[in-house]
Design a binder for these strands. Structure first.
Length: 338
DNA sequence: AAGTTAGACAACCGCGCTTCA
DNA sequence: TTGAAGCGCGGTTGTCTAACT
């Protein structure tokens, strides 16, 4: 037995909205508001539409101050940064861009930004592959036999040849203020807070309690705040041990978990933000992408995060602040192309 | 000129969450 | 405490149009 439909599907109009329908809906809402009940609204105004459809039409199109198209470079940067850090949470991303709707941003990402970004990353990937290849040949020529005997050639990090390193594809944005403000307000929205009237820096951000209540969420916070906010720097030290333990666990996967019968180990949930699904799956030798979107996570994050995690972890291990700073600097991806 | 393909955008669907009686 | 109703969100599909063959 399925869920009860929200409206009588047989008596509801679907497809594009006519100007008359738009006018009816808009004028009613402007005069009376939604009345807090979208389901009942179409009946009140004599529209043969589903309440959800009315809501969508209002939010995405009829609402005042909606901007369509013409995304600026700065908006691109904010979208890309937030997508890389929090994933496809379009409503949250839209919240950082006044006048933009989640649907608009989602469409824009899927049709343009993703391709733009992936195209740029592919170029880097090809260049990286060429460099790796020539290096490999160089090494082979110099000490082929020794390598073959010791098996060193099989010890290449699994992301180094197949996947590009975290090249700072986009450097610092030309207007970092907008990005910082967006991320700052996002963090605040999620429940965190900065002391009054202070810009985010390396020490003054306080995490929302509910977000850091579990180790998984702690990781989420770390990935969330990567680009410019203070949170990543502030939290690296405190989470190094967690990273260490976690990656030790990951290294022991799949042998350990496969023995337990896990195809998709539960503790990996949420790690795609740090590792990328493809990276996670690389350790299992399987691909579990479930959609085009999750593939994009793999496509993008897999080449962005592993080296970052590596940097962070190394920096923590060695206790070298400059490494940490360097990792932080590398996280500024989305500057306009030179 | 007609047919095909690809891109862009609008709209729908289904699920999870929240609210409220 | 529980279940129904409504809301909000992300993913997917449908439609339109311009570019291409």
């Amino acid at each position: 037995m399925g869920r009860a439909p929200c409206c009588d599907k047989t008596n509801v109009k679907k497809g594009p909205w006519s100007p008359e329908e738009d006018t009816k809906l808009k004028s009613y809402i402007e005069q009376h508001g939604t009345g807090g009940n979208w389901i009942a609204l179409p009946q009140k105004i004599g529209l043969k539409r589903c309440g959800k459809s009315c809501r969508l039409r209002w939010l995405n199109y009829l609402r005042p101050n909606i901007k369509h198209g013409g995304f600026s470079e700065e908006e691109d940067n904010v979208i890309c940064n937030l997508y890389l850090n929090i994933g496809s949470r379009w409503s949250i991303i839209a919240g950082q861009l006044p006048g933009r709707t989640d649907n608009d941003i989602k469409n824009y990402w899927n049709t343009r930004l993703k391709k733009k970004l992936l195209g740029r990353q592919r170029k880097e990937q090809q260049a990286q592959a060429r460099r790796a290849n020539s290096l490999k040949q160089e090494m082979k020529r110099e000490s082929c036999e020794a390598f073959m005997v010791s098996g060193v050639m099989n010890q290449t990090p699994y992301w180094s040849a197949e996947l590009p390193v975290a090249v700072p594809v986009m450097g610092s944005t030309q207007d970092p203020t907008l990005e910082d403000q967006a991320i700052r307000s996002l963090l605040i929205k999620l429940g965190g807070k900065f002391p009054d009237n202070q810009q985010p820096n390396t020490t003054n951000f306080q995490y929302p309690v509910d977000i850091i209540s579990s180790s998984q969420d702690q990781l989420y916070v770390n990935s969330l705040s990567i680009p410019t906010s203070a949170a990543i720097v502030n939290s690296i030290d405190s989470t190094c041990t967690q990273f260490h333990n976690m990656f030790q666990r990951l290294e022991s996967f799949p042998s350990e978990l496969c023995e337990l019968g896990y195809d998709n180990p539960p503790q990996l949930d949420g790690l795609e933000g740090l590792y990328g699904m493809e990276m996670v799956n690389a350790s299992t030798g399987t691909s579990t992408s479930t959609s085009g979107e999750s593939a994009s996570w793999g496509d993008i994050n897999s080449f962005v995060y592993p080296p970052l995690v590596s940097d962070h972890y190394e920096g923590c291990q060695q206790g070298l602040p400059q490494l940490r700073d360097s990792a932080f600097e590398n996280l500024r991806y989305f500057a306009p192309p030179q």
